[in-house]
């Protein structure tokens, strides 16, 4: 019988403590000790005069949807661009109010609710020691040696996997299913998430893995290993943007606004390259770490308005499933 009392005590304590606390929901990779989280917390707390930034980690959007209006979140960070439609539909977000001129992104940004903070492209990563010439298009990918194997992620459980099926759909349109059927023999396997797939690649089990054009930067900078590279396709690559949003019902609206402004400021943006291993949304090229300058990048990118992407999504996944199940 004491539990409700203890719980009430906790709740009271939590609300008192949160007078100065900004709750930011973030994916685990972002807020963990090995992501940009700790450095961002430190930089923001130095700026906000005695406030406390608290990361709340986990599956950001499902958790937000479970909590609904009751959520403690003031700000959410780390949403993927393919999630914005569902996030917007919750009605929990309010415009970010941040000036987005001068972004260093390959596309113009017009959304006034979701604020981009970093970006990359999905790409196939290979080991240049083992593969002398990398495919330069999807057709090259199909024409590779028969014993080359690729590992990809399931679009139903992984944002990168979803970006891949969208990319293929963008390039092949109605022929997407046929493409998947042709690629099927080259696919070693499909994993639940990015980590399993990347692990199979670094173990040498797969020759190529679906990841990001910025992945080689990790190996170059942290491991001094220049053998991992992204295969750049002439058709163009699917852009992968990560976003932040402000919760309308926040009990710390000023602090939340201050954080949203902070997201595009230089102290935050400079943490991104080596913290989240992707391109900052607003940072001049000369301020990027050296390893990033060496990255191979596509000339063309695919980026769809939210409604168009939503309309493509289900069909793209169904075609993937049919193509690989034949």
């Amino acid at each position: 019988m004491k539990t409700p009392l203890i719980a009430a005590g906790f709740a009271l304590f939590a609300s008192v403590a949160s007078a100065e606390t900004l709750h930011v929901y973030a994916p685990d990779y972002f807020a963990s000790d090995w992501g940009p989280g700790p450095a961002i917390k430190q930089a923001f707390e130095a700026e906000c005069d005695g406030c406390d930034l608290e990361w709340v980690t986990g599956d950001v959007l499902p958790r937000l949807m479970l909590e609904g209006e009751r959520t403690d979140a003031d700000v959410v960070i780390g949403l993927g661009q393919d999630e914005t439609a569902r996030a917007r539909a919750t009605g929990l977000f309010t415009p970010h109010g941040v000036d987005v001129t001068g972004l260093t992104m390959p596309v113009d940004w017009a959304d006034d609710t979701f604020l981009p903070f970093d970006w990359s492209h999905v790409a196939f990563i290979y080991n240049s020691d083992k593969m002398a010439t990398a495919p330069a298009s999807f057709d090259d990918l199909l024409a590779m040696d028969e014993d080359i194997r690729i590992v990809i992620q399931d679009p139903r459980s992984s944002p990168a996997g979803l970006a891949l099926v969208m990319w293929v759909k963008a390039v092949y349109g109605d022929e997407a299913e046929a493409f998947w059927a042709k690629l099927a023999p080259r696919i070693l396997t499909v994993t639940k998430g990015w980590s399993e797939a990347y692990g199979l690649f670094t173990e040498g089990e797969a020759d190529m893995v679906l990841s990001f054009t910025t992945s080689p930067a990790y190996h170059i900078i942290a491991e001094e290993d220049a053998t991992k590279a992204a295969a750049i396709f002439g058709e163009g690559h699917y852009l992968y943007v990560e976003l932040a949003g402000k919760i309308a019902g926040s009990d710390q609206p000023e602090l939340a606004d201050q954080f949203m402004q902070f997201v595009l400021s230089e102290p935050f943006q400079q943490i991104i390259p080596e913290g989240n291993w992707s391109f900052p949304a607003k940072l001049a090229a000369e301020k990027l770490p050296e390893g990033f300058g060496a990255l191979a990048l596509p000339e063309k990118v695919f980026f769809f308005p939210e409604e168009k992407a939503e309309a493509m999504k289900d069909e793209a996944i169904a075609e993937w499933q049919r193509g690989l199940s034949q």
């Binding site: 696919i187 070693l188 396997t189 639940k192 199979l200 993937w320 690989l324 199940s325």
Partner: peptide
Amino acid sequence: FAVALTLGGGPK
């Protein structure tokens, strides 16, 4: 789930 998917080789 994760084992079945990873070693199962795909959406089948």
